[in-house]
Write a protein that binds this DNA or RNA. Structure first.
Length: 436
RNA sequence: GACCCCGUCGUCUAGCCUGGUCUAGGACAAGAGCUUUUCAAGCUCUCGACACGGGUUCAAAUCCCGUCGGGGUCACCA
């Protein structure tokens, strides 16, 4: 039975790198019908915070990585101490009192030897432990160090495969020694390449957002983010870019993960998010959007027309990079006081459009049916009567109705805005006309 | 600095293990065009890489060595 684990430390948010490690672990577990275990490494009581535990769990759930078991290291202190005592008794460890510490720490005697690690991704890696100094097992405050707790837990939790970041390669020989000293069998290792920032070096806040929750807030879809993360250091082959998690489950093989570190490229994530948004189920997207719209006071929680919202979502879907774009681009459907971009107004509403707008307003009243086709037909007639180019009127109308120079097709906009609102917004620009 | 890992277009990658089908394929980005009602989307095209040097071989992106470059780790943090 395959048992893998993701072991975050709640000293910060779940970030891009951690999410990718969690993804590969989760995929491996699910693909092999194994167990995905979560282990909260909260032995550093000064830096660990409950809010981070909550944030990590929320992000993991949002991404869809459900776990089978969860453990907290802070509740397992007795176990670590027990094993430390055993090593002490066997003469494999010793106690030492640091000058500035009140109590003694338990320290592991590192035996000098050559040690070989088998890595599923990198093959064999050899180390000489002569360059490794003795390792603290239990700190003088009674809590275990990372490497010790990690080994004890991985053995105790019967972890079969340790899939983790590249930055742990140099911890591996230390841990291997501990497995040996404790008489535990050694799990298989797979060290994932790190995700780098655009400027080289580790992905950091300076390069952009690192927290998964930030991407969620910015309006990225979990499915798109997972797809993007999946393609960092792994490829399904066959020039496939868009791959859903179920297909990935069938194709993913941890031994085929690349050895080279990957750079996080927001532009490609943006492209991918647009692909998911564009092809996504409009109803589902609407449901995700509804809370955002309520928050912005665009709709009220107790009364909104969901079908109407779905239609609006469909209108914008192909042009959204993030969900939040919808709130920004579609605002004119919801606000009472239309904000008109200064530049747009200057460019398209500078002249007197009274005659044109009045004609169009009257035409809308004469339409057999107020639908997209008839609106367009009516508009074409107005343009013909006026003997002007379509775009000479389309752009001013768009700006008057939406406040923007960009947006969905004008006739759809008019249709969904409704006749009354359309006429009202156009009427504002008629001299001597109703200014309602 | 020591130890370890890695090195294909600007970025993500296919190819490498099992040399020849690679004048190196795809995607993002960038540039151009088509479409047109703006912006997206879509379609077409362009630009663009085997880090370098030595081997091995009839033949090397692929195998070997070296150099250089990038990254990681060297805590009573995890």
């Amino acid at each position: 039975m395959v048992r893998v684990r993701f072991a975050p430390s709640p000293t910060g948010n779940l970030h891009i790198g951690g999410a990718r490690t969690a993804l590969f672990n989760w995929l491996y577990a699910r693909a092999k019908s194994g167990k995905f275990i979560l282990r909260i490494e909260d032995t550093d009581s000064a830096r660990s915070k409950q809010e981070f535990v909550d944030e990590i769990l929320n992000s993991l759930s949002w991404l869809g990585f459900n776990w089978d078991e969860i453990y907290y290291q802070s509740k397992r202190l007795d176990i670590y101490n027990e094993y430390a005592q055993k090593l002490l008794k066997e003469g494999k460890a010793y106690k030492e009192k640091a000058i500035d510490k009140p109590r003694e720490a338990i320290i592991f005697k590192v035996p000098p030897q050559k040690i070989k690690i088998q890595d599923l991704i990198r093959g064999e890696i050899e180390f000489d432990t002569a360059v490794i100094k003795d390792q603290v097992l239990i700190k003088s405050d009674g809590t275990p160090t990372y490497n010790f707790a990690c080994v004890v837990d991985d053995a105790d939790m019967k972890i079969t495969h340790v899939i983790r970041g590249d930055d742990h390669i140099s911890n591996t020989p230390k841990q291997a020694l501990l497995y040996e000293a404790l008489g535990f069998s050694v799990p298989k290792f797979a060290h994932l390449p790190l995700i780098m920032g655009m400027e080289g070096g580790r992905l950091s806040k300076r390069t952009g957002a690192t927290a998964i929750s930030d991407y969620r807030k910015m309006g990225y879809l979990a499915s798109a983010l997972v797809n993007y993360l999946l393609l960092l250091s792994w490829a399904p082959g066959g020039n496939v870019e868009l791959i859903d998690i179920n297909q990935a489950l069938k194709l993913f093989d941890v031994t085929q993960v690349n050895k080279t570190s990957a750079t996080f490229d927001l532009k490609k994530l943006n492209w991918m998010n647009n692909q998911y948004l564009k092809n996504g189920d409009s109803e589902k997207l609407t449901d995700v959007l509804i809370p955002l719209l309520i928050e912005k006071n665009y709709i009220s929680a107790d009364g909104f027309d969901r079908d109407y919202l779905v239609s609006l979502v469909k209108l914008f879907q192909p042009r959204l990079t993030t969900l939040n774009d919808f709130c920004d681009w579609a605002d004119f459907f919801f606000v009472k006081e239309l904000k008109i971009e200064e530049e747009a107004e200057k460019k398209f509403l500078g002249g007197d459009l009274s005659r044109e707008f009045r004609l169009f307003i009257e035409k809308l009243d004469k339409l057999e049916k107020f639908d997209i086709l008839n609106i367009e037909a009516g508009f074409r007639e107005v343009v013909k009567e006026l003997n002007i180019e379509s775009k000479a009127l389309i752009h001013p109308i768009r700006v008057a109705l939406t406040g923007k120079t960009i947006g969905p097709g004008l006739f759809e906009v008019i249709y969904y805005l409704g006749k009354e609102l359309t006429q009202k917004r156009l009427g504002r620009w008629i001299n001597g006309g109703s200014n309602a």
